[in-house]
Design a protein around this nucleic acid. Sequence first.
DNA 1: CGGACCGTTGAGGCTTGTCAATATCCGTGG
DNA 2: CCACGGATATTGACAAGCCTCAACGGTCCG
Lengths: 252, 252
Amino acid sequence: MYASHLLPQAAGVAYQLSGRPSDAADLDCMLASQPVEKLAVGEAVFWEGDTASHLFQIVEGCLRLYRILADGRRAIIGFRFGGETLGMACQNTYGYTAETVTAVRLRRIGRNRIWAATDGADLLQPVLMARIFEEMAAAQRHIIVLGQLGAEERVANFLISFACRTGSDRRRPVAVELPMTRLDIADYLGLTIETVCRVISKFKREGMIAPDGRHRIILKDISALLHLAGELEDGTSSDLAGMTQRPPAWAN
Amino acid sequence: MYASHLLPQAAGVAYQLSGRPSDAADLDCMLASQPVEKLAVGEAVFWEGDTASHLFQIVEGCLRLYRILADGRRAIIGFRFGGETLGMACQNTYGYTAETVTAVRLRRIGRNRIWAATDGADLLQPVLMARIFEEMAAAQRHIIVLGQLGAEERVANFLISFACRTGSDRRRPVAVELPMTRLDIADYLGLTIETVCRVISKFKREGMIAPDGRHRIILKDISALLHLAGELEDGTSSDLAGMTQRPPAWAN
DNA sequence: CGGACCGTTGAGGCTTGTCAATATCCGTGG
DNA sequence: CCACGGATATTGACAAGCCTCAACGGTCCG
């Protein structure tokens, strides 16, 4: 399912092709003129605390975003895939380290150039804001997952949300690619690697999923997973279409 | 601050022409011209799902921000106090309900007016972005607290972060006002009310804190609390400077 | 003064973490 | 192409932490 780079940023490009001289095209245009950089597995794009000088667009691959705590624990804040952006909602310095899970191809652009572009005609601004707000909404969903849900609910949420993001075809059963390790998943969900394994095994026993190798899981009973997930993922997928196909919120 | 009585549409521009290149005043200025509204205990400012039409500045009081899950659980996303803003990092609709914990006085301003004011020269934008980024950083800290820390660590974090926010004088011991109930704290920290109580009692037994009534706690051993909290609260000031001291345009 | 709500404390059970052993995957080199 | 070795994943037994249920105490308010 790594054909995702063939349809980069569904939102931006689709909108661009629709013929409207839209805002979404701006950012993509600026980025499209940048050279593509390649990173091997395990390389860092930037480190927590680095000056947040650039914004990145992932062409292909998967990244993990994490912080290391004082006692050595690793907290994974999130993952990013091809078609998504990186370094958007940062202050002076990056708040986390971004490291490749797979080989990654990406483009970068100076944040100063972004902000300079908004000074003139600010067609760009709504797109930036929409993406930042989407990141915020994702963070709040994650807060609820970590604060309120049990292990099975967390894993169900994880699977469902990744099924939505990686743009699986809507036929059922859906196959989900999980390039990250179980440890990555555990550090993301606030569980241990053993608990993640046990939950996955249980889902498999109960026929809800069918693992296919380490990094691929077929979701066989999506409604059961959705029910477990607590319907946190219904109207709130990382679907950017909602933000572009509608007058921006701040236009009121 | 400015004692301006600006017409709604002219607010941003008028400020812009006023000659002071200080951005932070902008938003405060626009808000200062709005009437103060008063809310009683338990009233909602807005509900999850409402159209996000306004931005609010809390003059005085305390609010809880929460979502109700499908099964009835309540997840508190955060608290807001006097001097803080509300409804900043939202998309089309508010992502949570905002309800008063104490009596609250606040001002509101239409989001459309905010964005209209950024259309010209955007002195306002850096301030808005800085606050949004600060909200984002707070959300990521909360993710780490909920995902990685145990009950005692969570409560210690909670106490420390509130000691910082409510602007306690730096003399030690520091008194922290906690207007919310234990249930609010539990729903915020992803614990039960009983666990919160037990941790507080333990801290009290060990001489780290000294509760004074239900809604006031004196922190007697801050370094011990900081150590428990895992030093998550040290270098995270809400530094607005970053967006205004941009790197030069050639720094790509 | 009484009642309702909030807070505190205790006993026991369930979920998850820890430790340990085994199995599987995958890249590397023969 | 196959064998090997290290990393990753899985499974089980046990312990620890947190939740549930229950009872009691405190406080605020009518």
